[in-house]
């Protein structure tokens, strides 16, 4: 399992949330694919699949996320 996590150096203050998952839980995703959009302070940050495999979503869209949080995993 390979984690997809929120970088811990992106922002200082305020809340972040997954604004949308671009794939469904259980979908096959390719390494380098944009799998989700993270929203922080009127900023969009794309989350990239670090490997090819099955996406397992751990945090639903619209849910708040913290710095360093694992939001999904890839099953090889």
């Amino acid at each position: 399992m390979i984690d997809i996590l929120v970088a811990d150096n992106l922002w200082d203050e305020g809340e972040a949330a997954i604004s949308a998952w671009l794939y469904a839980d259980g979908d096959l995703v390719m390494a380098g694919a944009i799998v989700a959009e993270l929203m922080i302070e009127k900023s969009t940050i794309e989350l990239i699949a670090p490997a090819t495999g099955i996406l397992r979503i751990l945090v639903a869209a619209e849910e708040p996320v913290a710095k360093g949080q694992i939001v999904a995993r890839i099953e090889p």
């Binding site: 150096n9 992106l10 200082d12 203050e13 922080i40």
Partner: peptide
């Protein structure tokens, strides 16, 4: 890896 606030 710069913080968002710094860019703003």
């Amino acid at each position: 890896g710069a913080a968002i606030e710094a860019g703003y």
